[in-house]
Simulated scan of single mutants.
Amino acid sequence: MKRLVVALFALAISVGAARADQNTPRPPIEPVLENMLTGYIRPGYAAFEGAAAELGAAMSALCSVPSEASLETARSAFRTTVDRWGRMEWLRLGPVMSENRLERILFFPDRKGTGRKQVQAAIASKSDAVTSVESLAGQSVAMQGLGAIEFLLFGNGSDALSGSKVAHRCAFAQAAADNLVNLSEEIIAGWRDDTGLVTFFRKPGPDDPLFRTDQEALNLLLGQMIHGLEAIRDTRLSAFLNKQEPTRDRPKSALFWRAGMTLPSIEANLEGLQALFNESGIEIISKDMAPKLADAIRFEFRQAIRTAQDLDAPVSELLADPQTRDKLVYLDLAIKIIINRLDQEFAQAGGLAVGFSFGDGD
């Protein structure tokens, strides 16, 4: 717990402590924190745990009775799990940041293909170290999570899972799915009422290692959304989209391209951050100075989400068609507009100092 508190304090400090106008009244942050806990954090992780459990059950059925139908069921369960994780992925706070849980759930970016190479080597050698959840949990983070499962279910040789000659590969995927369940349960346990984290999270105070004041809490919450949106642009879209030079696009560098989940996962990311904004009720901070700003931010979120929804095709096809490629470029811009709204207008309406910036300044 001590290590977790130190990590949380470091994260809070890294977001920045802007000087607000002390004479400007501001609604208390505690209701926002409570709403975030009960309306977003707990139900979001519970949904991820439920999806991971369904994936584990689907893998068990596939390994017991291989067939094309059971393989498709497992693949569908994987897609649902990716969606549920995507909605929580950018909450970089609490137990997900301890014991490499974040990377064990999803190791990305992986520019050198480390995860794929390690998974392929384990398959080729029929390594026993990856066929039980206990032993897999001690292996490289790149072999444990969603990236590994995607290759096992959708990569080269995966169609053979519908037969009976790849028991090792199926056991590997089963262990990885069960590992996700364990990780999600650990995260859920870390957000229970009887933990020090929740005590600190609910009420800022002078001795609170997470945030000492309402303003520090606002900094951290707003920073979670802004840095998440930046990461979607920088590590998800930019992984395969080169805005300046189309000839340098890299469709096979996209996350989840094998499963056809690249754009759906980005859509889930955006919907998750929109839910964080809505469910927390953080808009109360801006009501007095900018009563219509929250609605404007919601509109921008909807624009970005609709654009992602319209891009329903493999990444390689989206990049090859000039019209859909232009939509990808627009999606990048739409996300940047949300960042600017939050980073500049909302931050100032919430009482942060003029000139304070969470953004990367591009």
Rank of each mutant, 00 (worst) to 15 (best):
R302V: 09
D332I: 08
W85A: 07
K112Q: 13
R19C: 10
G157S: 12
I338D: 14
P95A: 09
D360S: 14
A46K: 13
S70C: 11
D321H: 12
L220D: 04
T247Y: 06
N278A: 08
A294F: 04
G16W: 01
M88G: 00
Q120M: 13
R104K: 15
M225E: 15
D178Q: 15
F240D: 06
S265I: 05
S135F: 11
G350M: 10
P66Q: 01
R92E: 07
R325M: 10
F211E: 04
M289V: 11
L293M: 02
P251C: 10
A304V: 08
L293F: 06
V15L: 12
G190H: 02
V5S: 01
G190M: 00
A20S: 00
R75E: 06
D249K: 15
F346N: 00
S98L: 05
L91K: 04
V133R: 15
R26A: 10
E68T: 05
L255V: 09
R3E: 08
P28S: 09
R248F: 05
S60T: 14
N219P: 04
A334F: 07
A52H: 08
W90P: 06
G115C: 03
R42E: 04
S162I: 13
Q344E: 12
A124S: 14
M289H: 15
L161N: 06
K112G: 04
W191C: 08
M143P: 00
A231N: 13
D360Y: 13
E345W: 00
A275R: 11
G157H: 14
R250Y: 03
M97F: 09
S265H: 07
F356T: 02
V65A: 10
S14A: 15
I13V: 14
G223E: 02
A12L: 04
A353D: 15
I297Q: 12
Q118Y: 00
A160C: 06
A46R: 14
D208S: 14
L33Y: 10
G196F: 05
R42K: 14
T81A: 08
M289P: 02
E150N: 15
V6K: 00
A51K: 13
G163T: 11
T131Y: 09
S140H: 07
M36Y: 13
V130P: 08
P314H: 12
V32G: 06
V198K: 02
A347E: 12
L263V: 13
N269I: 08
